[in-house]
Simulated scan of single mutants.
Amino acid sequence: MPDRNYRNKLKANTLLVAKRIVENEGLGALQARRIAQEAGCSVGTIYNLYDGLDDLIIRVNSGTLEDLGAKLSGLEQSATGSLADNLTAMALAYLQLALDSQTAWRAVFEHQLAKDKTVPDWYREHQATLFSIVEKKLAHVVTDDQQRKMAARALFAAVHGIVSIALDQKLGDFDYAATQAQVKFIVQSAAKGLVEQPMQSNASTSGYAADVSEPDAN
């Protein structure tokens, strides 16, 4: 039991060290040797505790998704407004998280798995849980389960695209007010369209994206 407790504490500590490095310096600064040095263990220990550096990075990114999930769940539980209001609040919360935690947020999308690795099922399930928060808001205007999954992912892709372009300053200097306005426009337009013309159950939903990050190498 003492050995197991020590292992669990060491595993938690290495995760905290990795998270701190990513938050302060970005994914590019994360190296096994540095993690080991700051955690007070050997490089070999890192690979005994985790299934390689990819596994550790995915767990760091999972923490970022948990932060987002907590924000969205809080909004979902307290929501009393229209569909447009509720979806807009979630989208703006996403913008704020990306702005407040840029390096950690970027790491979720920058990480590329090694060629022989696949995204673990538990991480896919974590992503699906996040999308389910949005899907609940769409339930009364998108009654088909598969269409609702597609709609939630399409909304995310639109908002994420706006946020990414803005923070990367691809179209000019970052302007918070302008980015907010763009997010509101795309989300409220989509919500208005769904309310006025709910999606029919015979619409095609094949090929929708199943995840928000951690693409497989192939």
Rank of each mutant, 00 (worst) to 15 (best):
H140C: 08
A114K: 14
P120G: 05
E196Y: 11
A18L: 14
A91R: 04
K9A: 14
R33T: 13
D211W: 14
R4P: 00
I58K: 08
T179I: 13
I46Q: 00
R7M: 10
K71P: 00
L56F: 03
E66L: 03
A209V: 14
E76G: 12
A166Q: 05
A12N: 14
R20A: 15
N61T: 06
A70W: 05
G40T: 01
A79I: 02
G69R: 10
E38S: 09
Q77C: 13
G69E: 05
Q146A: 12
T118D: 00
A70L: 10
E66C: 01
N61E: 05
F156D: 13
E23D: 10
K170D: 09
L92T: 01
Q96M: 04
W122H: 11
V22Y: 01
T103N: 11
D100S: 12
V119H: 09
E214K: 12
S201E: 08
G161S: 11
S189Y: 12
D67P: 10
D216K: 14
T103I: 01
A91N: 04
Q96V: 06
E76K: 15
Q112A: 06
E135Q: 14
Q96T: 06
D121Y: 13
T143S: 13
Y50L: 02
A166C: 03
L95E: 00
L53F: 07
S62D: 13
Y94K: 03
A157N: 11
A32Q: 04
R7D: 02
A18P: 06
S201C: 08
E110L: 09
